[in-house]
Amino acid sequence: MRFILLLTIGLLIACKSDKKFHGEPLAIEGVSEKMKGILEFQSKYDAMFKDPEASPLPDRFRKDFEGLEYYNADTTYVVNAVLERTPDAIPFKMSTTTDEQRNEVVFGIAHFELNGKSHQLEIYRSADEGEAEVGDYLFLPFLDETNGNETYGGGRYIELEVPSGDSITIDFNRAFNPYCVYNKKYSCPLVPRQNYLRTNVRAGVKDFKKD
Rank of each mutant, 00 (worst) to 15 (best):
T75E: 15
G135N: 09
T169K: 10
I158N: 00
A89V: 05
G155R: 04
E129K: 15
S167Y: 13
A127S: 05
I90Y: 12
D171V: 12
N177C: 05
L140A: 02
G116E: 04
D136Q: 10
T75I: 13
E161K: 06
T86P: 12
L143I: 14
P91N: 11
A132W: 13
V162Q: 15
C180G: 05
S164R: 01
L121R: 00
T98E: 00
R174E: 02
G165W: 14
Y157K: 06
T86M: 07
F139M: 08
C180D: 02
R125C: 02
M94C: 09
T146A: 02
I168C: 08
D144R: 06
Q120F: 15
G165L: 14
K117W: 08
T86I: 03
T76N: 15
T98V: 08
F107M: 04
D128P: 01
T97V: 14
N80R: 05
V162P: 13
A127E: 06
R174P: 01
M94Y: 01
G165I: 06
G148M: 09
V82P: 02
E113N: 14
S126V: 06
E145H: 06
T98M: 01
F139T: 07
E133N: 11
N115D: 12
S95D: 15
D99W: 13
G148A: 11
K93I: 09
F172N: 06
T146F: 03
G165Y: 14
S118W: 06
S126P: 03
N149Q: 15
F176A: 04
V105T: 07
D136R: 08
Y179L: 05
C180T: 04
A132S: 15
